[in-house]
Amino acid sequence: KKVIATKVLGTVKWFNVRNGYGFINRNDTKEDVFVHQTAIKKNNPRKYLRSVGDGETVEFDVVEGEKGAEAANVTGPGGVPVQGSKYAADR
């Protein structure tokens, strides 16, 4: 997939743990970017499923997906693991 931007910061608008996807609002352009659970590179080690939490600040790359921009290599700011959704089960 073609990389559009790297190391972008954004805020998770919403993320559905059961369906495994959601949207991140970019801090720079204010665009909403699709995020799939497979794009989460550093999950919270205490969580079973990969997820990001609503309102969480994340860092990610933006790539060209089939339906427009989507997030890739999602981590917390500075490459730390994401916090994850409060609806995702703990280990």
Results as ranks from 00 to 15, higher is better:
1 K>A: 05
3 V>L: 10
5 A>W: 04
5 A>M: 14
6 T>C: 12
7 K>A: 08
8 V>N: 02
8 V>S: 03
8 V>Q: 06
9 L>H: 12
9 L>F: 15
10 G>Y: 00
10 G>F: 00
10 G>Q: 01
10 G>H: 00
11 T>M: 06
11 T>K: 12
12 V>G: 02
12 V>W: 04
13 K>F: 03
13 K>H: 08
14 W>M: 03
15 F>A: 01
15 F>K: 01
15 F>I: 01
16 N>E: 02
18 R>W: 06
18 R>D: 05
19 N>P: 03
21 Y>N: 02
22 G>M: 01
23 F>C: 03
23 F>I: 04
23 F>R: 02
24 I>W: 00
25 N>S: 14
25 N>Q: 13
26 R>G: 01
26 R>W: 06
27 N>M: 12
28 D>T: 02
29 T>L: 05
29 T>R: 04
31 E>H: 08
31 E>D: 12
33 V>M: 03
33 V>E: 01
33 V>W: 00
35 V>D: 01
37 Q>Y: 12
38 T>E: 05
40 I>T: 01
41 K>C: 15
42 K>R: 11
43 N>F: 12
43 N>E: 09
44 N>D: 08
44 N>L: 06
44 N>H: 10
45 P>C: 09
45 P>D: 11
46 R>D: 15
47 K>F: 07
47 K>V: 07
48 Y>N: 13
48 Y>I: 11
48 Y>V: 10
49 L>H: 07
50 R>S: 11
51 S>W: 05
53 G>E: 14
54 D>Y: 12
54 D>N: 14
57 T>H: 15
57 T>Y: 14
58 V>S: 00
58 V>A: 02
60 F>V: 01
61 D>K: 03
65 G>Q: 06
65 G>N: 09
67 K>S: 09
68 G>Y: 05
70 E>R: 10
70 E>V: 11
71 A>Q: 00
72 A>G: 09
72 A>T: 14
74 V>P: 00
74 V>W: 00
76 G>V: 07
76 G>L: 07
77 P>L: 10
79 G>C: 08
79 G>A: 08
80 V>G: 13
81 P>T: 11
82 V>N: 04
83 Q>M: 10
84 G>L: 05
84 G>K: 04
85 S>A: 08
88 A>E: 06
90 D>G: 10
90 D>R: 08
90 D>I: 12
90 D>T: 10
91 R>A: 13
91 R>I: 11
